[in-house]
Design a protein around this nucleic acid. Structure first.
Lengths: 100, 100
DNA sequence: AAAACATATGAATATGTATTTATATGTTTG
DNA sequence: CAAACATATAAATACATATTCATATGTTTT
């Protein structure tokens, strides 16, 4: 039996994850951190975003445990913390542009 | 080489898809139509939503080609039209609840 | 301990969007 | 062709949220 419909509660949980992935700025941050752990400053500079904006988005991603930060000296390096989401993002990026 | 970061344009496209998946009501509709093609009325009744609301959401999903409708007599049956998204949704539903 | 640095937080604002209510469109059956 | 039916659209509203600007927190150097 392949398609078992998730409960409303599980669906809500998933929707919350997708909602967070659904903002272009956040998604850019995630893809950038998918390649390697990145400091907040690096993210801001590389993606041409204000430090504040990056920090705000990271907070949301942290709150959903999509991302985790490790301090190294002065900087905090963020990386993706959910394997399924990481894999799914890589897969989606790989298949984008395919006409169904 | 596994992780190739998508272009900003592709990232925006993906974000738009995720944004649409990021609403609980829409996601419930999608999971319901993932099991089998469903008429608008069936969706509304089964998920306890107004016909108007269902129609509005279906319009957005149609606009992004995530869903496609086929008319059969009086009713229009909607089904998912993107294989990758369908597979990804099934996979996500399967792995939800796992503590990474 | 003070200064410098990197990151986080708060308030304000502007824009987006989900839902409802009312009505329209279009297909089908009598 | 008219009546009935299923779906779609429009306008209004209430709420969420992305971004900016200003400032705070906390860690690390000197």
């Amino acid at each position: 039996m392949r398609p078992a419909m998730p409960s409303d509660s599980d669906t809500a949980t998933l929707a919350e994850t997708f909602r967070l992935l659904g903002d272009p700025t956040r998604l850019r941050i995630l893809f950038f951190c998918l390649e390697a752990p990145r400091s907040v400053g690096d993210i801001a500079e590389s993606l041409q975003l204000s430090q504040s904006l990056v920090s705000h988005h990271l907070r949301l991603l942290r709150g959903a445990r999509l991302v985790r930060g490790n301090r190294l000296a002065k900087q905090i390096f963020y990386e993706l913390s959910d394997r399924h989401v990481s894999g799914m993002l890589a897969d989606m990026a790989h298949h984008v542009n395919e006409e169904n």
